[in-house]
Amino acid sequence: MSSISKYFSGLFTGIKSLLVGMSVTWKELWTKKVTQQYPENRDTLVISDRFRAELTMPHDENNEHACTACGICEMNCPNGTITVNFKMVETEDGKKKKVLDTYKWDLGMCTFCNLCVLTCPSDAIKFENTFENAVFTRDKLKQQLNHEGSKMREKKKVERPAAPVAKAPVVSEVKVETPAAEVKPAVVDTEVKAVVPEVEVKPTVVDAEVKVELPIEEAVKADKEIEAESKDETTEK
């Protein structure tokens, strides 16, 4: 292509592309405005469900929450935003148990990293998308998440037909502490028999709820609960 024709073709393609560009912006001029007029649009405002604005502890209709006061959230919080205050209570059968007293969360310190929610073993807390958190004094940012007079939801008993044999050694490995005196091998059925006597006895911990005079299903259930709770404790350590 000669330089002269190049010059003129360049000129005209240039003009054409400028006109195309202007037609694009002309169309853009009449598009719907994307600005969200915030205080006015509160009724129709859509905030993503995953938006993390406020930590909450869901309570059901019986004013019960799922928090076991294990304190994992408190330990995982990078800013020390969470304080779990618990008290030890004694159950009817004479066992000591951690019960949540107050669950404190300081919004002003929180970075909304979600680590507390991710690590909670009982799914007791979650982040809500209620974002209008501005207050006039810093004290109002410190919140108590558990409601007044609430208590922990009792775990539903999991139904399981029979204890599998393979499961048995695992129980012993975890070194479940059950009071040795209460375990009577004679009562327990043969399948569990191999297991229970091997259990290492540590009299210090008495959390287990094993009732010795039980039919086989009950006993296995009890084992499972022991397993679950001891897992909590090991993580704590």
Binding site: E28, L29, K33, T35, Q37
Partner: peptide, 14 residues
């Protein structure tokens, strides 16, 4: 004022 308004309209703002 006009410039800011028209600019905004070109950028789909108010």
């Amino acid at each position: 004022y006009a410039e800011r308004k028209i600019t905004a309209f070109f950028q789909a703002r108010y």
